[in-house]
């Protein structure tokens, strides 16, 4: 019982310590650009461009659904239709664009990174890299985290573009709100800081998802089962931390 309580308290703190140690080493390895240059492009493709279709699909649907639901909820004749645009666009820009992309990336990229690094760990590929005299953290983790930080905002832009577009099209052709009215409403309440805030959120999310997944994968233990566990943990931890980060950012920056 005591042991259990001790584990409950100390394990997360210990994990946090190891996580920050890993990040510290990774930051130290950032200047060794030649080590990870080639990997960086590869990871940018994996994290960014390969995730593009699913992110866009999810974003288009969330934009469309937000439009339909908002118009469904606005029954008062006193409220102008343009309010739909005023609600859908900030929703997309502030929250949905980043969070939908975040969840997809947590599942898709986070799990992939954890599985990849976990397998490399249990089959001693990471040891092999180290034994050759290579900085395995620089070689494996830095390009993945950098790719996350760079490509997540790119995916966010795509998500917002497609999401707002989807909302507009469904609103227009579904007969909820004409496109021009939608745009007028969006413009009336548009805050230039909103997309900046979205971008900041994305940088943070991209960093969290990739770094947490790298951490889980890099320290995998226990063969195939360990890899499975690391993969699940990476996806779950990414999602949970993402939600916390979302709240903290909203509370501090908005």
């Amino acid at each position: 019982m005591l042991q259990y309580a001790k584990n409950l308290l100390f394990d997360p703190i210990q994990a946090l310590g190891r996580y920050s140690q890993l990040l510290f080493k990774a930051f130290g390895a950032v200047p060794e650009f030649n080590t990870y240059r080639k990997n960086l492009w590869e990871q940018m493709i994996h994290v960014g461009i390969d995730s593009m279709p699913i992110v866009m699909l999810a974003a288009a649907f969330s934009g469309a659904v937000t439009t339909v639901q908002t118009s469904y909820q606005l029954v008062s004749p006193l409220i102008p239709k343009s309010i739909i645009g005023s609600i859908v666009v900030p929703s997309m820009v502030l929250e949905l664009g980043a969070v939908v992309t975040g969840f997809i990336l947590a599942g898709r990229v986070g799990a992939r990174i954890a599985a990849e690094l976990g397998t490399m760990r249990v089959t001693e590929q990471i040891d092999a890299l180290e034994a050759m005299g290579l900085n395995s953290i620089g070689y494996l983790i830095v390009p993945r985290v950098l790719a996350g930080i760079v490509m997540f905002p790119v995916l966010y832009v795509a998500a917002c573009f497609v999401g707002i577009g989807g909302g507009m099209l469904v609103g227009h052709f579904g007969g909820f709100v004409p496109m021009g009215v939608f745009v007028d409403g969006a413009r009336e309440f548009f805050q230039p800081f909103d997309p900046i805030f979205g971008l900041i959120k994305c940088l943070v999310f991209g960093f969290i998802i990739t770094s947490v997944s790298c951490f889980k994968g890099y320290y995998t233990r226990g063969g195939a089962e360990g890899v499975g566990k690391a993969t699940t943990e990476a996806a779950v931890a990414s999602c949970v931390l993402l939600l916390f980060a979302d709240l903290i950012l909203a509370a501090t920056l908005l």
């Binding site: 940018m44 960014g48 461009i49 593009m52 490509m151 790119v154 832009v157 795509a158 997309p195």
Partner: peptide, 17 residues
């Protein structure tokens, strides 16, 4: 090349933004 793909994507994203 990967570099080109990534570069084009980023430029397009910045433009759209």
């Amino acid at each position: 090349s990967n570099e080109l793909k990534v570069g084009i994507t980023i430029v397009v994203a910045i433009t759209i933004f």
